[in-house]
Simulated assay, not measured.
Amino acid sequence: MFSRLTVVRRLPQLTATSKRFASSLKEGSVAQSKGFSEKERAHENEYARRHEAQQLEKIKAEIEKKKTELNQLQAQHDAELAKAGKE
């Protein structure tokens, strides 16, 4: 009459809980925010302007050097023409 009774023992279930921070921002959203991208763009623009200004200064210095060299060559040429005209 009695049917076999089986006793089932259940192990306590462990649940893993993760900490959640109350924030409306998603992970990585700081880099995507408008203020951050504007600031980054401003830094890049400043670097580009500074780099271009340095390159322009180098080019201007090279132009001045070439102008003085040209003036010296022109003076030598004039001296040779004057020397050749006297002979």
Rank of each mutant, 00 (worst) to 15 (best):
F21T: 15
E40V: 15
E44Q: 14
A48N: 11
V7P: 00
K66R: 07
K58G: 05
L14N: 07
Q32W: 06
K86W: 00
L14H: 07
A22G: 11
R9N: 08
A42D: 05
E27M: 05
A22P: 08
E44S: 14
K86M: 02
K39V: 15
R50L: 11
A42M: 06
K19T: 14
K34S: 08
R49E: 07
H51N: 09
E52W: 04
R10N: 10
E46L: 15
S23D: 02
Y47W: 10
Q55K: 07
R20P: 05
R4M: 10
K34H: 07
Q13I: 14
Q72D: 06
S3H: 15
E87V: 13
S24H: 12
A42W: 03
V7Y: 01
F36Y: 03
S23I: 03
S29G: 01
K34Y: 06
S18F: 06
E87H: 04
K67A: 06
S33N: 01
A16R: 15
E52K: 12
E38S: 11
G35F: 04
V7Q: 03
N45S: 13
K39F: 11
E38R: 13
Q76E: 02
T15F: 04
M1D: 11
F2G: 13
E52G: 05
T17K: 13
S29P: 00
Q54A: 09
E69N: 10
V8T: 15
E27L: 09
E64L: 07
H43S: 13
A84S: 02
E27C: 04
Q76L: 02
M1A: 14
S33V: 02
A79C: 00
R9F: 03
M1G: 15
E69M: 10
T6S: 09
A48G: 11
